[in-house]
Amino acid sequence: MKEALSELGLSLEVEERLVSTPEEARSLRFYGSPSLKLDGKDLEPGADETKEPGLG
């Protein structure tokens, strides 16, 4: 992600986080792997409607 943004000439803060348990995934509302969020909202349409965590 950081490399792609750099190639586009964009400078954004990117946070990478390892999520290793279903409990942690639930608390972070992490419903897919990988999960891309912008301002706390999942970029995948419908992802926030899912109730079960997704760990890859």
Score class of each variant (00 low, 15 high):
Arg26Trp: 14
Leu8Cys: 07
Glu16Pro: 01
Val19Thr: 10
Leu55Tyr: 09
Val14Ser: 01
Lys2Gly: 06
Ala25Trp: 07
Glu23Met: 14
Thr50Arg: 15
Leu38Gln: 08
Leu8Glu: 03
Arg17Val: 15
Ser11Asn: 15
Glu23Trp: 06
Lys37Leu: 03
Ala47Ile: 04
Pro45Leu: 02
Leu55Trp: 06
Ser35Thr: 03
Pro34Met: 14
Lys51Ser: 13
Pro53Ile: 07
Leu12Pro: 10
Ala47Ser: 04
Leu28Val: 05
Lys2Met: 04
Glu49Phe: 10
Gly9Met: 03
Ser35Glu: 07
Thr50Asn: 07
Leu28Ile: 12
Tyr31Glu: 12
Leu55Lys: 07
Ala25His: 02
Arg26Leu: 15
Ala4Glu: 11
Ser11Cys: 13
Lys37Phe: 00
Leu55Arg: 09
Ser20His: 12
Leu10Ser: 02
Leu55His: 08
Leu36Gly: 00
Lys2Glu: 15
Leu8Trp: 01
Thr21Gln: 04
Glu16His: 04
Leu55Gly: 12
Arg17Ala: 12
Lys37Asn: 06
Lys41Gln: 09
Glu44Gln: 06
Arg29Leu: 06
Pro34Leu: 08
Leu28Lys: 05
Asp42Arg: 00
Ala4His: 07
Glu52Asp: 05
Glu7Val: 10
Glu49Asp: 15
Leu12Trp: 09
Asp42Ser: 08
Lys41Ser: 01
Leu28Met: 06
Lys51Gln: 10
Tyr31Trp: 11
Leu36Lys: 01
Glu15Lys: 15
Ala4Arg: 12
Leu12Met: 05
Glu44Thr: 10
Glu49Val: 11
Lys41Asp: 02
Leu10Phe: 11
Glu52Leu: 14
Val14Glu: 11
Ser6Asp: 12
Pro22Asp: 02
Glu16Gln: 14
Leu28Asn: 04
Glu24Ile: 03
Leu8Thr: 03
Ser20Pro: 02
Leu5Gly: 02
Gly46Tyr: 04
Ser33Arg: 03
Glu23Leu: 09
Ser20Phe: 11
Phe30Ser: 10
Ser35Gly: 04
Glu13Phe: 13
Arg29Gly: 10
Leu10Gln: 09
Pro45Cys: 08
Arg17Asp: 08
Glu52Gln: 07
Glu16Asn: 11
Gly54Leu: 05
Asp39Tyr: 01
Ser20Leu: 15
Leu5Val: 03
Val19Glu: 01
Glu49Ser: 13
Pro53Trp: 03
Lys37Gln: 09
Leu18Asp: 10
Ala4Val: 13
Gly32Ser: 11
Val14Trp: 04
Ser33Tyr: 06
Phe30Ala: 14
Ser20Trp: 08
Ala47Gln: 01
Val14Arg: 11
Leu36Ser: 01
Glu24Gln: 13
Ala4Gly: 13
Thr50Ala: 08
Lys37Asp: 02
Val14Phe: 03
Pro22Leu: 05
Pro34Ser: 14
Ser11Pro: 08
Ser33Trp: 07
Tyr31His: 10
Met1Ile: 12
Leu18Trp: 11
Asp39Glu: 12
Asp42Trp: 02
Ser27Val: 08
Thr50Leu: 08
Thr21Arg: 06
Leu5Asn: 07
Phe30Val: 11
Glu7Ser: 13
Leu12Glu: 12
Arg17Gln: 14
Ala25Asn: 11
Glu23His: 07
Leu8Gly: 04
Lys41His: 12
Pro45Thr: 01
Leu8Gln: 07
Lys41Tyr: 04
Glu3Asp: 15
Thr21Cys: 12
